[in-house]
Design a protein around this nucleic acid. Structure first.
Length: 453
RNA sequence: GGCGCCUUGGCGGAGUGGCUACGCAGCGGCCUGCAAAGCCGUUUACACCGGUUCGACUCCGGUAGGCGCCUCCA
């Protein structure tokens, strides 16, 4: 079990994960009012792979990624389409599961829905009211920010000059402009509501995460993550709610991923420069999308464009080619094993995926340079193990189907043509094979057929 | 205006006080009937100006430009 360090947003320091007890990880998932874009996919990939790595190191990690399925935006989007908001939310939740499922990374250990956590949400709000950290006003319930002294400790903002709301007209109901809604009374045109001690309504934006995180992971848990745009106000407010209610820390480490940018501007549904995850997978494939998302350090912004995606495709092809020639199986030699070790070291050091990938590519080059080096036997085994850790294990999988009889026949005919040095005929057959989806590679041991993309 | 971050070679993107990141693309070469794959070489990368230092891309200060959050947002 390696010592794993993660940069904590709150303290700005690298903190070491505890070796005792469960590693609870909560990452904020999407609000499902439309299909998710590739920026939304970044935390899903980062935290899924982090949990996978920790488990492989022997840490008892549990990953929870929520779905926020009740929200103003959902009402608005549903009204535009003229369908019930619950129907839109269900549709988009299903789309989210499908789109992220196509990444081939499996599912998080828990994926709670806000609408299925209403009980704990109401209880949490009631506690805050009882403790004097929240108050009812006109059927709404607001959190009293000034009742929580530590407010601002995550985002390091002075409480002066702050004002928040969800674009509604609740201003007059608040005692203080800093306060934010925990519970919103049912309004005209809204088609979902739950009973509560303050009348029918629905949760505010931040409270659902506090409740779901506690329900799934207890409090405190180890890592709370999400996009860097959630630091304020979302995560700041989660801290205020949870810590004011329970009198103890919410999470030990705050881990935030950087934004994906198009033309140096962040990808955002409200800006409209979005690229849907499903579209990216359709065009470049899941492996390329995953490779792209781990091509930069999780905390840094990542440039988006066709170039980077195409580069990911090409890089994957290099790895796949190597694995075709060096299929996993043999036990890894010392040098190959050392590369795998450094790969894991990089991941243990603030989850540095680009540095880890360097080890993968370095290993490929070394093994290609010195194919007879004993220390590099089993390089394919080592490489496949590394790639599996970052969700690219499929690069090691052999094509599901070998060449069919027709292709083999053509290949044999081409071999004959080559023997008689009938190059024209040989090239002609090569073109025919290409049309059948096979690329011919002539090597020392004869010609091979490799599936074309 | 407040808080924080960034500026690396054609592109993406790591990293370190003195040593080739890596990948993609281009160019040249090796191999090859040709091609593919692979290998080698290559295009003198670290925004600018000062400072600290024997030595800075890597630390400090400033300048310019850019970004994020402060309103919904991964």
């Amino acid at each position: 079990m390696r010592e794993v360090r993660i940069k904590d947003t709150m303290s700005g320091e690298l903190l070491t994960l505890p070796v005792e007890g469960e590693i609870g990880i909560y990452a904020c998932g999407p609000t499902v009012y439309s299909r998710i874009h590739i920026g939304n996919a970044r935390p899903f990939v980062v935290f899924s792979l982090l949990a996978r790595f920790l488990k492989s190191e022997g840490y008892p990690a549990k990953l929870a990624i929520n779905v926020t399925d009740v929200n103003d935006k959902i009402y608005t989007a549903a009204a535009e389409r003229g369908i019930p908001s619950s129907e839109l939310a269900a549709e988009m939740t299903a789309a989210y599961f499908e789109d992220t499922g196509r990444l081939g990374l499996g599912r998080p250990d828990a994926e709670p829905l806000a609408t299925e956590t209403i009980g704990p949400i109401v209880d949490l709000i009631a506690t805050l009211v009882d403790e004097g950290h929240a108050y009812e006003s006109g059927g709404d319930v607001y959190f009293s920010v000034r009742s929580f002294d530590a407010y601002g400790k995550l985002s390091h903002r002075p409480t002066e000059e702050m004002e928040q709301g969800e674009g509604d007209d609740a201003g007059s109901l608040k005692r203080d402009p800093l306060d934010f809604a925990l519970w919103k009374t049912k309004k005209e045109g809204e088609d979902t509501a739950w009973d509560s001690p303050w009348g029918p309504g629905r949760p505010g934006w931040h409270i659902e995460c506090s409740a779901m995180a506690e329900a799934e992971l207890g409090q405190p848990f180890t890592i709370h993550g999400g996009g860097s745009d959630l630091v304020f106000p979302h995560h700041e407010n989660e801290i205020a709610q949870s810590e004011a209610a329970r009198g103890k820390e919410l999470a030990r480490i705050w881990m935030h991923n950087g934004m994906i940018e198009t033309g140096s501007e962040k990808m955002s549904k409200s800006i409209g420069n979005i690229f849907q995850l499903s579209e990216a997978i359709d065009r470049f494939g899941a492996e390329a999308v995953v490779a792209y998302l781990i091509s930069g350090h999780y905390r840094q912004p990542l440039a988006f464009g066709e170039g980077p995606l195409e580069q990911a495709v090409a890089g994957n092809e290099r790895l796949r080619n190597f694995l075709r020639e060096n299929p996993p199986g043999d036990e890894a030699g010392t040098e190959a094993a050392a590369a795998a070790d450094r790969f894991r070291d990089a991941l243990a050091d603030d989850f540095n995926t680009p540095r880890a990938m360097r080890e993968a590519f370095d290993l490929v080059r070394a093994a290609n340079q010195r194919p007879d080096e004993p220390a590099l036997t089993g390089a394919g085994t080592a490489l496949a193990g590394m790639l599996d850790l970052v969700g690219l294990g499929s690069l090691a999988e052999r094509g599901e189907e070998g060449p069919d009889a027709a292709a083999l026949e053509l290949l044999a005919a081409r071999n004959q043509a080559r023997e008689s040095k009938d190059w024209g005929r040989a090239d002609e057959i090569r073109d025919q094979l290409a049309e059948l989806g096979w690329e011919v590679r002539d090597g020392a041991e004869g010609a091979r057929l490799v599936p074309r993309d």
